[in-house]
Design a protein around this nucleic acid. Structure first.
Lengths: 242, 242
DNA sequence: AAAAGATTGACCGACAATCTGTCGGTTACG
DNA sequence: CGTAACCGACAGATTGTCGGTCAATCTTTT
């Protein structure tokens, strides 16, 4: 019954389960017992790989944010695109964040997961704000922006972006759209850009994303349904392993 | 040995101790045992007045934010002052927030207290953003602002205000000042106000505050020292009422 | 109106059920 | 044969519950 795996493999296994569990029940409500039971390992094994429960959380945050930051960095350093699109693209890359952390992002904003939320925001801000600031300075030089405080402007933009759209859950589509338009306009004003310049950039990006989403739509449908029914395990405890 | 008090009295007593403890050690690290031991009541008594530990936290958040919101509301509705000063005054009223919650505010931003932080921010935003939005609309009508999205602008301002100055702890004075200047400039831009108009308003308010602080400096000196040494009670319990 | 009884709600403290992190020992792999 | 993954019992601590106590207040009775 004893299965030995490489440290890296087992670590990822733990992170996978923990991520799902934290997102499902919240960091406090999901116990380390839940984790080890679902994987089928012993208590000692968990603590052989991670020094504490919070250590696991940190690793999860690191894993999720790494992708988003890398994506943003890639977009920013792609000097083929015009500056406006690089800026808006980078900001979008962090929030929409498909694939991996989607389930986490859905549940992250509940009061339960305040810690997770804060840690992700911290890391996201620390990693991306400097890049955005550099971008703004570049815009200053090229004349499309006119910002006296690039670093602070970048911070303001990112903080708002990562905090304002938390309430998505109980917001209607039209409100979200209005909020998005307001956000773009305000960014333009903060950066001293010509009005409408970022709006255009964002439209281009979204169009591009919609097209690529269209392309791989077929395979997604089944997964969607499965995820919805899976929600809560319901029957817990009552272990009977002879 | 059994001391009976009115429910309200006892509740406040619990909140006082809990607030101090949460601020000192963080919500998770402070246990309900710490609370009841320091007050000298039994477990059952605590849970007679509050249904859970989190319920206590909610009550604390409510108590603290109530003051700040009331202060902001008072400033906003004081139509004797010019609009600019009411706006900046209201924003300042929430963050500086002297007296009551000061000790809490000092400790609130540590990763330990993510939950407290989030709950306070939520309540603060929900309570004040509508007021600020109304103020912006008033400014639109009187011609000093030109904002197409007053509600969203207010939200952006408040979110940034309550999140950006979290790192005060490890920031140098000059950085804070720079950040403050940038913040004001960015607000002016977001609201489409004439540049410098809010800067002036803030200077007036700060001057006024400094003066009033000067006035009651004499009586405060003793208290100040007392409070500093008071920090940790150290000797707990040991009540002897014959 | 005073005494006796009943009701209410603050208060108590033992207890169940968890949860986290530790530690000495075991087993598989290189 | 040593290192590192793995195990599971255990200590210590925490939250919330529950039946029961006690004092103050209201009601009834004499």
């Amino acid at each position: 019954m004893r299965v030995v795996k490489s440290a890296e493999e087992r670590k990822n296994e733990i992170l996978d389960v923990a991520e799902q569990l934290f997102a499902e029940k919240g960091f406090d409500n999901a116990s380390t017992n839940d984790i080890i039971k679902q994987i089928g390992i012993a208590r000692g094994t968990l603590y052989h790989h991670f020094s504490s429960k919070e250590d696991i959380l940190d690793a999860i945050v690191e894993r999720i944010t790494r992708n988003g930051i890398a994506r943003a960095r890639a977009i920013i350093s792609n000097t083929d695109m015009p500056l406006q699109e690089r800026l808006t693209g980078a900001v979008l890359a962090l929030n929409i964040s498909g694939e991996a952390g989607e389930e986490v992002f859905e549940q992250i904003h509940k009061p339960q997961n305040a810690l997770l939320h804060q840690k992700m925001q911290e890391r996201l801000l620390g990693g991306v704000v400097p890049l955005i600031a550099a971008l703004i300075e570049e815009g200053n030089r090229s004349g499309i922006f006119e910002s006296e405080y690039p670093a602070e402007a970048a911070e303001m933009i990112m903080i708002y972006a990562s905090a304002a759209f938390d309430e998505h859950l109980d917001l209607k589509a039209e409100e979200i759209e209005r909020k998005g338009r307001a956000f773009i306009l305000h960014i333009e004003r903060i950066l001293g850009a010509e009005e409408g310049i970022l709006r255009e950039a964002i439209m281009k990006i979204l169009l591009r994303q919609m097209k690529s989403a269209e392309r791989k739509k077929a395979g997604t449908e089944k997964e969607e349904k499965q995820r919805r029914t899976h929600r809560k395990p319901c029957r817990e405890g009552k272990r009977s392993d002879p």
